[in-house]
């Protein structure tokens, strides 16, 4: 995948997320992009080559460098974020039903302890099947993009 195509897909996804009220996902990715990427930079001098492994290991310096994300890496971050934010909840409910079958056809409820807030309900009934199928389909499409990115990044 070229830098240009990675940029086009990134911008297309950003636009789709905005249309569907998911700007917070873009914000999370932007925050990570702004921080930059930390990379391990193992430095080794040529005279270390002849040393025993243990000595060489002691001498090897591990350094860290900060750099900007490439367009492809930025797209990979966005894909991961969409998978976690959009597909994750449906896939977790599916996992829950496999792990605790006794919870099927019930709702799970979530409430802040000691705070007067609304209780959130997550139904674990037949209605989740459509969402799980959509989530799996979306994961498949995102994997397709990731596959092309990995081919490039390798």
């Amino acid at each position: 995948m070229t830098e240009e195509q990675a940029t086009d897909i990134y911008e297309g996804l950003v636009s789709l997320l905005g249309e569907h009220g998911l700007s917070w996902v873009i914000d999370e990715v932007h925050a990570a992009v702004t921080e930059g990427k930390t990379e391990v930079n193992e430095s080794k001098s040529p005279q270390d080559e002849g040393l025993l492994f243990a000595h060489r290991r002691r001498r090897t310096g591990v350094g860290y460098v900060q750099r900007d994300w490439t367009n492809q890496e930025r797209l990979a971050l966005l894909i991961n974020a969409i998978e976690a934010a959009v597909c994750g909840p449906a896939l977790i409910t599916s996992d829950l039903l496999e792990v605790v079958p006794a919870w099927s056809n019930h709702s799970l409820a979530f409430a802040a302890d000691g705070l007067d807030r609304e209780i959130d309900f997550v139904p674990l009934d037949g209605s989740i099947q459509d969402r799980v199928a959509l989530a799996r389909g979306l994961v498949g499409l995102l994997q397709e993009i990731r596959g092309e990115l990995d081919a490039n990044l390798d």
Binding site: L13, V86, P89, D130, R131, L141
Partner: peptide, 16 residues
């Protein structure tokens, strides 16, 4: 992606 994102996004906005 757009066709799948729509129905899932509605759920994500409302869900826990």
């Amino acid at each position: 992606i757009g066709t799948r994102l729509g129905p899932l996004a509605k759920d994500v906005r409302q869900s826990t």
